[in-house]
Simulated scan of single mutants.
Amino acid sequence: MEEMISFEDFTKVDIRVGTIIEVNDFPKARNPAYQLTIDFGDLGIKKSSAQITTLYTKEQLQDRQILAIVNFPKKQIATFMSECLVLGAVNGKDVILLNPEQRVKNGSQVN
């Protein structure tokens, strides 16, 4: 287990539901990845890079709802600016995306 954090630390993490509206290959990434464009409703559109190519095709990701942390600073990845962190469970080298069990409004907050 990692270092313990306080509840106050947890409340600083802004996790939201978004829908992937565009998926592109990311050949300049160090490890195989996709460039995702995600609609977070009232929060707007954000982009992210995700190393999820082993389990998901671009077609499977289109219109899929995901969970992401939206209040990290932007991060330059090769020639791409990532604006949020898509959440997934790591299983060996594979990443399984986290998503709501039922469709919800884009931008819904995860508590």
Score class of each variant (00 low, 15 high):
K58S: 01
A29P: 00
A50V: 06
F26D: 06
M81Q: 12
L85P: 01
M4P: 07
V17D: 07
F40T: 09
P32M: 06
G44V: 13
E8R: 12
M4R: 12
G92D: 11
V23G: 08
L36D: 02
V90D: 09
G92R: 07
E3S: 11
Q35P: 01
T79L: 07
Q35S: 12
V86Y: 01
I38F: 07
E101D: 13
P100A: 04
V17I: 15
S49M: 14
V70K: 02
F40V: 06
N106P: 03
L61M: 09
L67T: 09
N91I: 05
S108P: 10
K74R: 10
F7N: 05
R64K: 15
I96L: 13
F72N: 09
L61R: 11
N71R: 03
D63L: 10
N71M: 07
V86L: 01
I20Y: 06
S6G: 11
Q65H: 09
Q109V: 15
T53E: 07
L43K: 13
F26L: 14
F72Y: 15
V90I: 15
P27V: 00
E59S: 15
N31R: 10
G44P: 03
V95R: 01
M81R: 02
S108W: 09
C84M: 08
P100H: 07
R64V: 06
L98K: 11
C84V: 14
E83M: 04
R64W: 01
L36S: 02
M81S: 13
A50S: 10
G18S: 11
V110C: 14
D25C: 08
T53F: 00
S82M: 06
V90W: 00
M81K: 14
K58R: 11
S82F: 04
T11Y: 06
A33L: 03
N99L: 06
R30I: 01
L87A: 05
E22T: 09
E59T: 14
Y56Q: 12
A29T: 01
Q65S: 04
A50C: 08
N31L: 13
N71W: 01
I77M: 05
L85E: 00
R64A: 07
A78K: 02
I69N: 04
K74G: 01
Q76C: 00
A68P: 09
L55V: 08
S48A: 15
L36M: 05
I5C: 09
Q76H: 03
N91S: 10
A78F: 02
V110E: 08
N99E: 14
S49W: 07
Y34N: 03
K46Y: 12
A78E: 13
S48K: 04
P73Y: 10
R16I: 04
P27F: 04
Q51K: 13
M81T: 15
V86C: 02
K28G: 00
A33N: 06
R30K: 10
V13Y: 02
S6L: 13
V110Q: 05
E2H: 02
F80L: 15
T79P: 01
E83L: 08
F40Q: 09
Q65F: 11
N111T: 05
E22Q: 15
Q76V: 07
K28N: 09
Q62T: 08
G41I: 03
T37P: 06
V110S: 04
